[in-house]
Design a protein around this nucleic acid. Structure first.
Lengths: 224, 224
DNA sequence: CGTGCCCGTCAAGAAAGCGTCAGGAGGCGC
DNA sequence: GCGCCTCCTGACGCTTTCTTGACGGGCACG
């Protein structure tokens, strides 16, 4: 879950922010001062920081710099001060966005989404690991028995479909349609050839596969 | 030099923006309509886009979507409309920032710097060192076998994309789109030529590359 | 015990992709 | 205008990948 650190000294606004964020299924943590914010961020690095500049204990810019010393987490600044100078100082200190109070909750949330989108912290976990081999879908890297293994485009495509349905049986027809297109749905030959290649490259004992399983008469299944 | 695309239909504001950007040593290009903006961006992919939402020929959101179809270049929206809904729509369509008119030039420039800072950074170090060569992204300097090497602008651009995705496979189409623009996504010739040039300039044995790796049928990969 | 079905394996030709070279066009400074 | 650099483009031979057919083994069933 996406973790948001809210740094706001005024209890009313802090509470409103927390409620709204949690309603959107963010994991929201609160800090009421700059020192506390830095401590919390260090203990549990957030995915995005919403920072009120007008804190009682520290200047807001110092908080930004304190964070920027070790993390590039997006920082969205809230501030009652609307002069250009204030914005320039905060943005150049390392803030990603600057919203003047009073602000609308919808706007804040939209800017939050924009900031999170950029970091690309998608919910995907594209690394699949088994006892025998490791597959990194994003980087298109595979390794087995400790050594890097090269897969051809078709092998990747086929394997991806199986991994997406990990544990589940994938019947031959959907498999063929997905990888080779609808015109090839009866070319079960291809499956035999390419499953064989995948096994030879990845399985410890290709003749007795443990992860790329044949379900006779039905299709194939990938199990971890 | 950093390339800024300014999309603004009103001549006075457009001129003011261009003057201010050029005074800060940005390479600023102007477009007065949405269609023109998309064409210019495709021909010469910019590093950041400043986009007025109130264009005569297209809805601003369409322009955002047209860009987001192929590039993740930062988009800073300018708009006379200050309602939350307008901001939410533009930001969720893919904009990175939203500034309401009238605005101060200093603020725009600060937000521009913030947007550019994000793209350049990441977990990158501006200096990449391998056993065979050294690349200083910031200073645009390269050296191999102890000697300085000159790379052309296109070679830099291509190499930067690969370095940003160090270790990860970059497929041909995204690579072509990023470096040459969306109209060139099938010109795989270019990749072959320029990868060859990079290898000849940087690899100890260009015929057997160790760092600029080809993944047949898929794309290319930079490994340290 | 024979037959048919399905699967795994192999190999060879076809197709697609890759590296390389060289020539020409266009831009830029002199 | 002239030379230099960069980019684009097409062609060629070579490598990798895909496709296709054939063969043999295991298994169920008659």
């Amino acid at each position: 879950m996406t973790r948001v650190l809210v740094v706001e000294d005024e209890p009313g606004l802090r509470r409103a922010l927390m409620i709204n964020l949690r309603a959107r299924h963010y994991e929201a943590t609160a800090a009421s001062g700059g020192a506390e914010a830095l401590a919390v961020a260090a203990a549990q690095p957030p995915d995005v920081v919403v920072l009120d500049l007008g804190l009682p204990d520290m200047d807001g810019t110092e908080v930004i710099e304190g964070l920027r010393g070790w993390t590039e987490v997006p920082i969205i600044v809230l501030s009652a001060r609307s002069s250009q100078d204030d914005k320039v100082v905060a943005l150049d200190a390392g803030a990603d966005d600057y919203i003047t109070k009073p602000f609308g909750m919808d706007e804040l949330l939209a800017r939050l989404r924009a900031a999170l989108r950029r970091t690309g912290s998608g919910p995907d976990v594209p690394v699949v690991e088994t006892a025998s081999f490791t597959i990194d879908l994003a980087a298109k890297r595979a390794s087995a028995h400790g050594e890097a293994v090269r897969l051809t485009p078709t092998e990747w495509h086929l394997f991806e479909v199986l991994i997406r349905n990990e544990g589940k049986l994938v019947e031959r027809r959907p498999l063929l349609q997905e990888v080779w297109g609808p015109a090839y749905e009866s070319e079960t030959n291809y499956l035999r050839v390419y499953m064989g290649q995948l096994r030879r490259k990845l399985e410890p004992d290709p003749a007795h596969p443990r992860h790329l399983i044949t379900e006779p008469g039905l299709g194939y299944r990938f199990v971890r």
